[in-house]
Design a protein around this nucleic acid. Structure first.
Lengths: 210, 210
DNA sequence: GGCTGAATGTAACTTTTGTTACTGCTAAAA
DNA sequence: TTTTAGCAGTAACAAAAGTTACATTCAGCC
């Protein structure tokens, strides 16, 4: 575990802290599609992402979803931080977007480290910063962009996260994450295809140039 | 200033910290409509809200606005926190919604206090928590609600912030903050009036029952 | 090979939101 | 008092998004 940890976090944490994380952290692997957090869960540990990607989703009153953002290696879940510290229920759902490896840190430790390690404090604050910025970005998208532009952004994000030009999603799945309907997604995808920007196949979309 | 401080923050901070805030903090008053932060500003101090209210706005590429949320007494600006610590430009605009009193804390102090005062750490973390929750709420509104519901929510919020049933805004102002057009706002307000929920007057809206 | 269920394509229509254009009203300035 | 600028009301239309309904295609299974 140490080697993996260092790869993503050594530039952030001093060796002492890395060693402690190595001691108390719990290394876990999850597979694409696995659920990590459900809305309403109480959380007792926070994740440090070693590899893979996690998607964070919000749910409306009808049970429909909206993709908020992705977590990538080196990230932690800011929502979890605040939930742990405040003993609050989770307001979001977290699913593995890819096969993912993470280190789980017990709440007590993260509180203790806030006092002991300046680098930990900075990491936690920086995490909040990036998360607030991601949320702003999400707000920009849904408030300022039309669905066709949001779809293009979504495809770009997916491509960057999975590091591949072929996105393995159905139109229905995309519709869920953008909080719209399958018909709308099909319509707009077709338009993108006719513009030569993507190629459509059953269960997958190839990005040509976006 | 001490007395004001204690009123809003004494349950959060130990006396030592209150005393220090009293020493290094800079008490300022602003009038409704005053601009506190512009997009792109570098921030060198963080505000603690004593009285009044601040509205936080986001801007799109065309220069149009969107109301994100309000800050109330006892709050601080989470965006400012991250900007200060990360030496980043502000991503938001802050305007005085009401006549407002705040204490400005220099960046160096807030960093120092993070190490020295547990209560300060908790306050900063709790601030991030509430702000993330507010942002989630904003996302819920724009992603899941129709304009008529958003308008109702907006009017309720305004009423609660100003603690009055009469909202002194033009339709144009409301349209800016909801990122829609004046005609749409007029239309929906008229509908609310015909349902007996509000009463419309020039430059003001009286909330009857929402 | 034929069956089946999921995925996709598409037309037709509705609803919601945004836009344009013009009206009249009101408060404050001249 | 008259003028004027900003505010509000509303009709008519356009665009974006959501809905319904049905046809077609495809992969995997029997």
């Amino acid at each position: 575990m140490l080697s993996n940890l260092k790869q993503n976090f050594s530039h952030l944490f001093e060796d002492d802290l890395i060693a402690e994380i190595n001691q108390v952290g719990n290394l876990i692997h999850v597979t694409e599609g696995d659920k990590l957090i459900e809305i309403g869960d109480y959380l007792r540990s926070m994740p440090l992402l070693i590899s893979g990607a996690i998607k964070i989703l919000r749910e409306d009153s009808e049970g429909d979803e909206l993709l908020l953002y992705f977590l990538e290696p080196g990230d932690t879940c800011a929502m979890t931080l605040t939930c742990c510290l405040g003993q609050k229920k989770s307001e979001i759902r977290a699913l593995a977007e890819l096969d993912t490896t993470l280190v789980m840190i017990p709440v007590q430790k993260m509180e203790e480290w806030m006092g002991r390690f300046k680098s930990w404090r900075n990491f936690v604050l920086a995490s909040y910063h990036t998360r607030l910025m991601e949320m702003l970005d999400t707000i920009d998208s849904i408030a300022f962009l039309n669905m066709d532009e949001r779809l293009v952004k979504y495809l770009r994000d997916k491509k960057n996260i999975a590091k591949t030009d072929v996105i393995a999603s159905t139109h229905q799945e995309i519709a869920y994450e953008l909080h719209t309907s399958r018909v709308v997604v099909s319509r707009l995808l077709k338009k993108l295809e006719s513009m030569g920007k993507i190629a459509l196949n059953r269960n997958s979309i190839k990005i040509i140039e976006l």
